[in-house]
């Protein structure tokens, strides 16, 4: 009786086992461009950038004791933290796309882009005031 040789262990096991499973029926149209994931990552990068810039502006303003700059930077940082939390709750800002509801979630409306723009403008005004104060 010949002993059946086991095939070499495929690694990583999680991927291999998943690949060998019978395919499940696709929920919606496939998305080889990974649009949803790329968009989600773009939001995360942007939130991270907001945090970094808010801290940088705060430090620059704090060192110069410019009160309005400090206030605006703190406001930006606070809204940034709030936005991070709410963005995680995706359903608040997005909804299933009316055209392909089973595959994609798109922005519900323009509220979130508008809020982000206001935050960026607030930071820009804080930096601008800092520069004007340095000139005066």
């Amino acid at each position: 009786m010949t002993k059946e040789r086991r095939s070499p262990r495929a690694w990583p096991g999680v991927v291999w086992r998943r690949a060998q499973r019978p395919p499940v029926a696709p929920v919606g149209r496939p998305d080889p461009g990974l649009q949803q994931e790329r968009t989600q990552l773009a939001w995360r990068r942007s939130i991270l950038a907001f945090g970094v810039v808010a801290v940088a502006v705060f430090r620059a303003a704090y060192l110069d004791s410019l009160h309005i700059g400090v206030a605006l930077a703190l406001l930006g940082a606070g809204i940034c933290a709030w936005l991070s939390l709410t963005t995680v709750r995706r359903r608040r800002w997005t909804w299933p796309s009316p055209r392909e509801p089973e595959s994609f979630h798109v922005l519900r409306d323009g509220t979130l882009p508008f809020l982000v723009t206001v935050m960026a403008c607030a930071l820009a005004v804080a930096v601008l005031l800092n520069a004007v104060d340095a000139l005066a």
């Binding site: 942007s46 950038a49 907001f50 970094v52 810039v53 940088a56 502006v57 430090r59 620059a60 060192l63 110069d64 960026a120 930071l123 820009a124 930096v127 800092n130 520069a131 340095a134």
Partner: peptide, 12 residues
């Protein structure tokens, strides 16, 4: 944000 970081850096 990158431009604002640059502005803050020039100042700081």
């Amino acid at each position: 944000l990158a431009l604002l970081a640059g502005a803050a850096a020039v100042h700081a």
